[in-house]
Design a protein around this nucleic acid. Structure first.
Lengths: 335, 335
DNA sequence: CTGAAAGCGCTTACAG
DNA sequence: CTGAAAGCGCTTACAG
C-alpha cells in the first residue's frame, strides 16, 4: 500500500535524480550555483517521489525553525484576522511562516502558549494579547508587541495604533454631532486604558462630564451589553456611547434594542477596531479603524529587522487610526 | 547577556542533575521506572536551566511529531471555535497537540495548507473545510472529516452533524408556527447541500412551495444579505427564512432591517451552527446547534483510534442536531 | 538505573 | 559540482 511506503528522504531524491545528496540540499535551499539541467532533474525527482523536506530535520540541522509565533487572545473576537494577514504577507518573502496560538483555548490545559513556541524554537514572538509573566521575561527570543498593552516587556519592539488619539477623535465626532451626554464602556488591558484616556482627553477639553462603565476585564459582546445596561440605568440621559471595541459595541446595540432605544436616532454608538463584525449590513457600525493590516505589516518588518540585527535598540511604531463613519451615529435629538 | 547564552540541551540537564542523558530522556517521557529522588533532581535541573526539549529533535529522533493538523475555512466565521476546543480536549490526554491552518489566509500564498502539515509530518489531518484535491489523495496520513463535505476523501473517517435532519426540524418548527411561505438562502459545499435537502424534505412533506436562493459558493454575512434581498424581491410574500448558517442569517437580518421588516414580527429567521454570533444579545438568533464541541470530541476519538489501528475500516459518526429557540421566530402574522 | 552507540533527515563546511 | 564527514538534540534499544 502506498500509505505503508517509507517516506522519501533526500537520499531517495538524490538517487532518483542521479546527483549527490548535497546537490539536492542546494536546490531545496534555492542556491543559484546549480546548473539548470541538474536543478530540473532534482525538481522532477522531488515531484515524482512526492518528496517533502522534514521540517523537524531542517530545523534541527539548520538551527532555525523559520517560524514566528503569534499569540492572540481569543478566536471569537476576529479583529486579529487582518493583523495575521498583514504579518503573513510581511513575513512570507523572508521565508518565515506563522504559527498561531490563542490564550482562551490554552487556559484549559494549564500551559502558557509560550511553552509550545519555545519548544518549537520560534525565531520571534508576536504578542497580540496582554503578555503573561512568562512572556515578559522569556528574553530568549525577540518579542514584538502588536497593539497597546498594559504590561511592558523589557526590550520588546512595539507596533501599535494610537488608541488614545482614536478614542479622542471618536468623541470629537460625537461632540460635533451635538452630543454632550457621552458614556464610555470599557474592559481591561492596554488598549482599553489608552482608549479610556482618549475619551477623557476629549471630554475634558469640551468640559463634559465623564461617565465610564467597566464591569470586567473582558471586552466581549456580553460584557458590552452589561456595561450598557448599567450605563443606561445610571444615566438614562445618555445619548451616545463609545465602546471599547466592536464586540462591546454590538453588545451595546443589543442593550439599546432591549431598552427600546433606536440606534442612531435615540442612541449613537461607536465601536473600535473596524473588525469584520462592524462592517456587516445589520450593524453598519461607525468605528475606529485601528489599521490592523498595516499593524501586521509593520510588526513583520520589526521581526525581520530584529532578526537581522539582534542588538538594535527597541523600536516603536505608532499608526494613526481612522474614524470610519457608517450608520450608528446621528445628531443628538434635541440639539 | 542571558539572551546570548546557548540554549540548554539534554546534556546540560544531565550534567546539572548528576545523572545520565538517558535518564533525563526517561524523565521527559514520563517513564515510571525512575526513582523519585532522581526524578526530582532532573526536574530541578530542568527548571534551573529553563530547559525545553527541542520539538524538532524530539520529532526527528522519535519519528513522530505528536501533532494533528486542523484545516479550517476562514477565521472570520467562528463556528470552528468550539470544534477546536473539543478536538483539543480529546487529544490532550494522548499528548497530541493541534496546529491550525486556515484556507483563506493561504490563498494569498498559493500553497495548500496541506503542504505545511505534510512537512511537519502531522500524525493526522482533521478537515473542517471542503477538501482540496491534494487533501483527497494525500493518503500518507489518516484524514478525519469534520462536518459534511461535498467531496469524498477515500478512506477518511467522518464525524458530522446530521445537517439534513437539522434543516428539516428547523422548517418543521416554522411550519408549526403557521408559516407557509418559507425561503432558504444557501451557499455551496457539503453542509449546504445537506441543509438544502433537509429544507426540501420538510417543504415537500408539507406540500409547500420551495424557494431556494443561492448567489455564491460562499456563506458569509454579505452573501446572506444578497440572497435575502433577492428572495424578498422575488417573493415578497415570504414570512420565514432558513439561512445556511448563522453568518448568512445575520445578513438576512440586515436585509430585513433595510427592507423595513421587523424580525420576528414580519419575518422569522433561523440560522445554523449555534455559533458565538447567534448567542449575542442583539441577534438572539434561533438556530440549529450542530454540536460543534461534541463534533470535536468525536473527531479526536477517531484520530486516536485510527492512530492505534491504522488498518481499521473508515468510521462514520453522525450527531443529532438540536434546535435552539431564541428570539427570531414568531407565529406567522395572518395565520 | 548507566553508558556507549546508532540513528532520525537534514545542513554545513571542506577538500577535491 | 561531488563525496565523505560531522553535527543538530533528541530517542531507542542494549549490554552491563
Amino acid at each position: 500500500m502506498a500509505a505503508e511506503r517509507r517516506r522519501a528522504t533526500i537520499y531517495d531524491v538524490a538517487q532518483a535524480a542521479g546527483v549527490s545528496k548535497s546537490l539536492v540540499s542546494l536546490v531545496l535551499r534555492g542556491s543559484p550555483s546549480v546548473s539548470t539541467p541538474r536543478r530540473a532533474a532534482v525538481l522532477a525527482a522531488i515531484k515524482e517521489l512526492d518528496y517533502r523536506p522534514s521540517q523537524a530535520a531542517t530545523a534541527l540541522a539548520g538551527g532555525t525553525s523559520q517560524t514566528v509565533g503569534v499569540v492572540i487572545d481569543d478566536y471569537t473576537n476576529t479583529w486579529f484576522v487582518e493583523l495575521l494577514r498583514g504579518l503573513q504577507e510581511g513575513l512570507a518573502s523572508a521565508g518565515l511562516r506563522i504559527a498561531v496560538s490563542d490564550r482562551s483555548l490554552n487556559t484549559h490545559i494549564e500551559s502558557d502558549p509560550l511553552d509550545g513556541f519555545l519548544s518549537t524554537r520560534v525565531e520571534a514572538l508576536v504578542l497580540a494579547t496582554e503578555p503573561t509573566e512568562a512572556m515578559r521575561f522569556s528574553s530568549q527570543i525577540p518579542v514584538i508587541i502588536a497593539g497597546n498593552r498594559a504590561t511592558e516587556v523589557p526590550g520588546a519592539d512595539i507596533t501599535s495604533s494610537d488608541d488614545r488619539l482614536g478614542a479622542r477623535r471618536a468623541i470629537e465626532h460625537l461632540i460635533s454631532l451635538g452630543h454632550t451626554q457621552i458614556g464610555h464602556i470599557a474592559g481591561g488591558g492596554g488598549a482599553s486604558m489608552q482608549r479610556i484616556a482618549g475619551y477623557q482627553d476629549a471630554m475634558k477639553a469640551a468640559g463634559l462630564t465623564e461617565r465610564i462603565v467597566t464591569v470586567s476585564e473582558l471586552t466581549t459582546e456580553d460584557i458590552g451589553y452589561q456595561c450598557t445596561r448599567q450605563l443606561l440605568d445610571e444615566a438614562p440621559e445618555t445619548t451616545a456611547i463609545l465602546a471599547g471595541n466592536d464586540s462591546m459595541a454590538m453588545g451595546a446595540m443589543g442593550a439599546a434594542q432591549e431598552a427600546g432605544l433606536l440606534v442612531p436616532k435615540d442612541l449613537s454608538i461607536i465601536g473600535y477596531d473596524n473588525s469584520p463584525l462592524s462592517d456587516t449590513h445589520l450593524l453598519q457600525l461607525t468605528t475606529v479603524d485601528s489599521r490592523n493590516h498595516a499593524l501586521g505589516l509593520h510588526a513583520a518588518e520589526q521581526v525581520l529587522s530584529r532578526l537581522a540585527d539582534p542588538e538594535r535598540t527597541a523600536q516603536r511604531v505608532l499608526l494613526e487610526p481612522l474614524l470610519i463613519e457608517r450608520s450608528t451615529c446621528a445628531p443628538v435629538r434635541n440639539a
